[in-house]
Amino acid sequence: MAETAGIVFIVMGLFFDLFGCLGLVRLPDIYNRLQAATKCVTFGTCSIMFGVFLMKGFNATGFKALLIILFLVLTSPVAAHALARAAHISGVKLWRGSVIDRYEEDKGKKE
């Protein structure tokens, strides 16, 4: 029973991973790519880890899988935020279909 549930979680995680990487290739500019990739790949990998925990139960592998979930949820949004900010500061423009850029306006005011 736990094994079947684990396999279901792993397959769901693989599905989301695949869509995240497809988003990395398809979407037009870096900010959109960052959105798709960060959300889907983080959630997919966390789901894979939870599946591993369900299949293995409470032993060394299971505990470490839970720890990896904790690390990923804490670190991956921070890395995404740092990369988005760095991209904006280093001068990458938004996609030409973008509607609004309040950040650029504010930076212009400060200088």
Partner: peptide
């Protein structure tokens, strides 16, 4: 930055 994002995501996939 595009390359940096892809490197980050590649790392997470490798963890899985």
């Amino acid at each position: 930055p595009d390359r940096a994002v892809a490197i980050d995501i590649l790392g997470i996939v490798i963890v899985g």
